[in-house]
């Protein structure tokens, strides 16, 4: 039963993540050209307070995603099956992308911010591919071998590796400047 739920959860998360990554990479939400909006969504990118709210929310989601690693390696310390943790990880990844849209308006910026955005978006794409590879194991008789699934997951982890430093530097730069 769980396998069915996990498969559906993973494929939904993977498809959503890929869709969001494509949208984020190709489009930009323009700043409003009027102050007479019914819903002043612009405040997300114009107000320092909202930038901090969405930024720290994004940091929170990123840290929660990291919990999957600890669940995997310290299984005695955690509750719930690994499969359900993996689905949750996928959902948090998608939620993180949605908050990323709110935080950046899908603008990549320059230099440090550009590096951070590329790593974050690429890591999510890697995660989506990893989720897809796991889902294929349940779905198809001829699925990717274990070796290849591990390789995809490692690519996901490898892309993620500079993220702690980039996030820390991004936060430092915001308060420094």
């Amino acid at each position: 039963m769980l396998r069915g739920i996990e498969a559906r959860g993973l494929v939904t998360a993977a498809a959503s993540a890929v869709t969001l990554v494509i949208i984020i990479s190709l489009a930009v939400i323009p700043y409003s050209r009027t102050v007479r909006q019914n819903i002043p969504f612009d405040i997300l990118w114009r107000s320092g307070l909202w930038q901090q709210v969405t930024g720290f929310l994004l940091l929170g989601f990123s840290l929660m995603c990291l919990a999957l690693y600890f669940r995997k390696h310290w299984r005695r310390l955690w509750f719930g099956s690994f499969s359900s943790w993996r689905v949750l990880h996928g959902i948090l990844g998608v939620a993180g992308l949605i908050v990323l849209v709110a935080h950046t308006g899908m603008r990549f910026g320059s230099n440090l911010n550009l590096a951070l955005m590329i790593v974050f978006v690429a890591a999510n794409l890697g995660g989506a591919l990893a989720a897809g590879s796991i889902w294929s194991r349940y779905q198809f008789a001829r699925h990717l071998s274990h070796k290849w699934r591990r390789r995809i997951i490692w690519i996901h982890v490898l892309i993620l590796s500079p993220l702690p430093a980039l996030i820390a530097l991004h936060i430092l730069s915001i308060y420094y400047f």
Partner: peptide
């Protein structure tokens, strides 16, 4: 950050 060239931190033009 310690040098005169802090372009790496420039968030946009």
């Amino acid at each position: 950050l310690q040098t005169d060239n802090q372009q790496a931190f420039l968030p946009g033009e």
